[in-house]
Design a protein around this nucleic acid. Structure first.
Ligand SMILES: NC(=O)c1ccc[n+]([C@@H]2O[C@H](COP(=O)([O-])OP(=O)(O)OC[C@H]3O[C@@H](n4cnc5c(N)ncnc54)[C@H](O)[C@@H]3O)[C@@H](O)[C@H]2O)c1
Ligand SMILES: NC(=O)c1ccc[n+]([C@@H]2O[C@H](COP(=O)([O-])OP(=O)(O)OC[C@H]3O[C@@H](n4cnc5c(N)ncnc54)[C@H](O)[C@@H]3O)[C@@H](O)[C@H]2O)c1
Lengths: 204, 204
DNA sequence: GAAAGTTTGTGAATGTGAACACAAGTGCAA
DNA sequence: TTGCACTTGTGTTCACATTCACAAACTTTC
């Protein structure tokens, strides 16, 4: 199985395992069983083992997995072993909240720059990041950022994404409720809070 | 097919169709084909038709779907035909952003109350909603709210969720990176911005 | 009103991931 | 050394979702 295609769903679960492992490491735990891990994440134990089996043999029967080594493995798989730089465009309510959030660090993710069109905001600092003029979006190229967070109004989302793609952004986290048109090799993840809230009544 | 079990993935797509239909209605469009709709949402045309086929016959061959009627149908399926009330707990950076957001209205969703533990915030108004003392969380029962948005620090998330479940909340939108333990009949949707950002490097 | 052009609705085929069951590896106690 | 309790890794089975292909329904055109 080791060299087969990796299921998308498996990739989606890896960050969750990582989150749980960080928690365990903080509490001084050095070894963990698939059962342990599964309870933290909310899946079944065999799901955890199956997921790992796509990449190799990570654990020892009768013992479990070594927390630190497993953490490193998952980090490597997810390409979180080296620092990844991100920029944020649109420092409104939501953008400011994301900028102020410090929880990205342990995943080796850093927001190195923020952009806005509002002249009153340009020059100010939020979450330790200075807000620049969106007209200077081209400067992202020199910063070597590969990720972008889009928190502008939907109407201008596509307009800010196009130049970002041109200067080397490869992955986009899109908070607007507009579908972004990008080249095939660019990855877009959409977070639409409205959609998620609107889905809930169906299930209740 | 009409009375079979509805695939989860179909339900997940319905709000996206709804979002596109609102846009079309705004632009004065009265009829729409599955092809049209599919391009707005980013799926294939037959996926759209298949999804609708689980609920009945919504369109007319050779013509398409009537925008207003289709909108009503989806609203009904998603239980968005009557107003649903939500409360928000934790008016920090993220909570304030959600409170200030006005895009929930068209889905018949209203945030009617907000709660925080910070005495400096209690009594203030954000996004037209007055912040109340989290110690009075029990009062949610009288408000007839069925939904809750959780934007408190992860450590206290479970502590605020437990009383919410007791006073009748049925659906929860959880922004913390902690798994919430709730009774089976309560629906929890997790939005973890850190996880979504951490997944991107794998794909780039 | 017949023919050509659209578009829907859906059974069947295909693909993918979840769930299971169990053999095999490990540690420990007697 | 043996037996027992525990845990991993994975081939297989099963359930669900996507994809396809096409008949049937409708409109438009001439
Ligand atoms: N806040 C929420 O809870 C929420 C929920 C769902 C979706 N969203 C979406 O997230 C996005 C941001 O929401 P928000 O509440 O922060 O809105 P906001 O209005 O507070 O922030 C938008 C920011 O973008 C800036 N901006 C406008 N045009 C720009 C441009 N061309 N280039 C750069 N910056 C520009 C504005 O100056 C402002 O600072 C919106 O698309 C919104 O629909 C927000
Ligand atoms: N901001 C982001 O971009 C982001 C990203 C990922 C996850 N999150 C998560 O979202 C949550 C909120 O993030 P934030 O950035 O708004 O944090 P924040 O610290 O700005 O806000 C937390 C709010 O909760 C309130 N609070 C604390 N204890 C409370 C209690 N017992 N009852 C009610 N209210 C209480 C605080 O007074 C504060 O207003 C956190 O769990 C965070 O991990 C945020």
């Amino acid at each position: 199985m080791r060299y087969a295609r990796i299921p998308d769903q498996t990739i989606r679960r890896l960050p969750l395992y990582l989150r749980a492992l960080f928690l365990m490491a903080e509490q001084g735990q050095t070894e963990v069983s698939s059962k342990d891990l599964s309870e933290h994440v909310g899946v079944h134990a065999w799901q955890v083992r199956k997921d790992f089996s796509f990449f190799g043999e990570f654990g020892r029967p009768g013992v479990g997995y070594q927390v630190s080594w497993l953490t490193d493995q998952i980090k490597t798989i997810l390409r979180l072993d080296s620092e990844k730089k991100a920029v944020l465009v649109g420092v409104g309510n939501l953008g400011a909240a994301v900028l102020s959030f410090s929880g990205f660090n342990k995943y080796n993710l850093t927001i190195i720059a923020a952009f806005d069109a509002d002249v009153n905001k340009i020059g100010q600092t939020v979450g330790g990041v200075e807000i620049r003029d969106v007209a200077c979006l081209d400067s992202v190229g020199e910063l070597n950022a590969t990720l972008a967070v889009i928190t502008v109004p939907g109407q201008v989302a596509q307009a800010v994404v196009d130049p970002l793609v041109n200067v080397g952004i490869r992955g986009i986290l899109n908070f607007t409720s507009c579908r972004l048109i990008v080249p095939d090799q660019i990855r877009v993840t959409n977070i639409d809070i409205g959609m998620d809230l609107a889905s809930l009544p169906y299930y209740i």
